[in-house]
Amino acid sequence: MKIAPPPRQIISKGIATADLLAHILNAKFCDALPCYRQERQFACLGAEISRATMANRAIKAANACTLLLELLCWRFIPVR
């Protein structure tokens, strides 16, 4: 019996799943919820994630998406 390899992580060697990163970024940029408020929400749920950790993960996720952003800009922004 073979087991499929796990999916690639957005942040290599990190424990943050794509779902957690999406939640943090969605709350920050779509819901305008700063990291210190998210930190309190996670604490109420029993998960201790510091605002520095959330900010670092947001930066790493953005860096991982640079190629995608460049392709989208190249496709949808007309060159003058």
Rank of each mutant, 00 (worst) to 15 (best):
K2T: 15
K2W: 14
P5A: 13
P5Y: 05
P6F: 13
P6H: 08
P6E: 13
P7C: 04
P7S: 08
I10F: 05
S12F: 15
K13A: 12
T17L: 08
T17G: 09
A18P: 02
L20V: 07
L21W: 01
H23S: 11
I24N: 02
I24M: 00
N26E: 08
K28S: 04
K28N: 03
K28Q: 05
F29W: 11
C30E: 07
C30Y: 09
A32T: 06
A32G: 05
A32E: 08
L33K: 04
L33S: 06
P34I: 02
P34S: 08
P34F: 00
C35S: 14
Y36M: 09
R37M: 10
E39D: 06
Q41K: 04
F42Y: 12
A43T: 07
A43E: 11
C44D: 09
G46R: 00
A47G: 06
E48T: 15
S50Y: 05
R51K: 11
A52F: 10
A52T: 15
T53R: 14
M54H: 00
A55T: 10
N56Y: 09
A58W: 01
I59A: 09
K60G: 00
A61L: 02
A62N: 02
C65S: 11
L67V: 08
L68A: 13
L68E: 03
L68H: 08
L69E: 05
L71P: 00
L72N: 05
L72E: 02
W74E: 13
F76V: 01
I77V: 12
I77R: 02
P78I: 03
P78H: 03
V79H: 12
